[in-house]
Design a protein around this nucleic acid. Sequence first.
DNA 1: CCCAACTACGTTAACGCTAACGTTCATTTT
DNA 2: AAAATGAACGTTAGCGTTAACGTAGTTGGG
Lengths: 313, 313
Amino acid sequence: MTVSRALRGVEGVSEKKRAEILKIARTLNYVPNSNARSLAVANSNLVGISLPTFAGEVFAEILNGMRQTFEKAGYSSVIDTTEYSRDAELIWVRRLLSWQPAAVILTGVDHHPETYALLKASPLPVLEIWDHTDDPIDLCVGIDHFKAGQAIGQHATERGYKCPAFVSTPKGHDIRADARLAGIRDIYRQIGQNHVPVSRPPLQSAFTAGFQGATELINEEQPDIICFLNDHMAFGGMMACNSLGLSIPDDMGVVGFNSLDLASVLPKRLTTIRTPRRLMGVTGARNLLARINGVPIERNIVLPVEFVSGETT
Amino acid sequence: MTVSRALRGVEGVSEKKRAEILKIARTLNYVPNSNARSLAVANSNLVGISLPTFAGEVFAEILNGMRQTFEKAGYSSVIDTTEYSRDAELIWVRRLLSWQPAAVILTGVDHHPETYALLKASPLPVLEIWDHTDDPIDLCVGIDHFKAGQAIGQHATERGYKCPAFVSTPKGHDIRADARLAGIRDIYRQIGQNHVPVSRPPLQSAFTAGFQGATELINEEQPDIICFLNDHMAFGGMMACNSLGLSIPDDMGVVGFNSLDLASVLPKRLTTIRTPRRLMGVTGARNLLARINGVPIERNIVLPVEFVSGETT
DNA sequence: CCCAACTACGTTAACGCTAACGTTCATTTT
DNA sequence: AAAATGAACGTTAGCGTTAACGTAGTTGGG
């Protein structure tokens, strides 16, 4: 017990003895066993985070915001990527729960029914991030993707574009992108345009996907504005327009999403939507910490996005 | 014990009883306690991975290669980012060891002395990835950054560029980039050019850093070729050349590193070096698994890189 | 019909740690 | 000087799991 106390830095040990113990521990290359500790005290400072992917800056920035906040509060995080699969997410959640974490963070609000059941049944704090729903498992901090789509549609109609198109990912892969598309369609339906073709290039680099999707749409439809899943794809699309001799924004409007760093070096400022990624991570983590500590908080937060009017529309 | 056997799927339980147990476990929302399991069996299927950063595709690709390989073998991975700090790496290694992992993976070969001591002293398999050294802690799979720099220098001198410059990150932040710079300098020294100025723009997005670094070098030195830490920065640099009215490759040569996806959509193919990132992850993970299982393997592997001659030099 | 051999299931102890409660002994209070 | 206090250190038991061994009951071979 004296050793345990000395190493944990709790009181009840003389400074002399503590120094002695620390010295011996050092020479023995002793490392405490966290498994045994967690078992004994029946809690942990682990937070499990599930993300769709490590690719791209978006989730990296949300993640950084969360991790730094947790780190400061003495929590470690373990991360998994689901590659946009609900089944993979479920498997991860099961494994995570077996580690007795202090909290769980999931990306989005669309989960396997069993994931939902498992987490609803457990007393664990759960945070859903990046998307928004009226009925979160526990906490939710995100943006309204449908409204973001509407903002894009609004801008596009105001600028006089008549034939919008959208470049996305394979079906079911990113339901947030589908929500944004639905927002765009909603606005265009109001002016009688019901045809908003979508290209879904196969999974690959965002740049080449954007290039390919734009090329396909231009060849097969007659869009006058193309909206992309994100800025990187939009850049690929701009390159496609260049190589097809279309001038932006006159022959073709281009709209991105996320306001990524790339946009800041382009000769033409990209029309896009700025998402508060870091803030979202920090807010989410803070709320979760409050929840862990039993502090009452707003359970459902929708952060605002900022429309960025650039030179590509 | 019967319950334990039933849930683990080991033999010694009748099918009838097993089904019964599984059903009850389900209704109770039972999740096994991995901490207790690890404690009892004194091992785990956790692999700890330390990366400099989640930003950029490079480490994401290495990571994917490793994770998929481990996943197939039944191992989970926990990841941490050090943000290029040796102290942060040490803290992470200590915490990781307290979780009794099956193996440790570090990025690069430059570690805090205590990290080194701790891991050398432990019987844990350790993999160092991405860089190369003659004296690894245990296993090493990487590329030779100095030689990669030499390849760039070789190409640049052959193309007749006389005044090279380099855009990097803040001092001490990325010693692999410094090794490549040393390779370039080594070649240029051989033709009597000892001046290779370096710009170290502050930490920020790779695109803006490249833009800023290139602008600074062009304003303050007279380079005829600029080599960048990576392709994203090279792209930022190309944009800077554009905005300063310099034509590539005649007024200014541009060389990147990594051969990232971005390059595939650019109107001018970028001169760069293709690094085998996924292969490196997979090879590293396989070797580590072999090591865990006691299979004898090559401890020190240097993977080849491919010079990609593009239209920017 | 007996005993070996097996299957199905149970009991015990141990993994490393810490909460809770003991013990010792020097110091202060009365 | 006796009693009370408290700091420093120790002992016990239990966290949930599993390896190792134990014990019924069943099968089958001689």
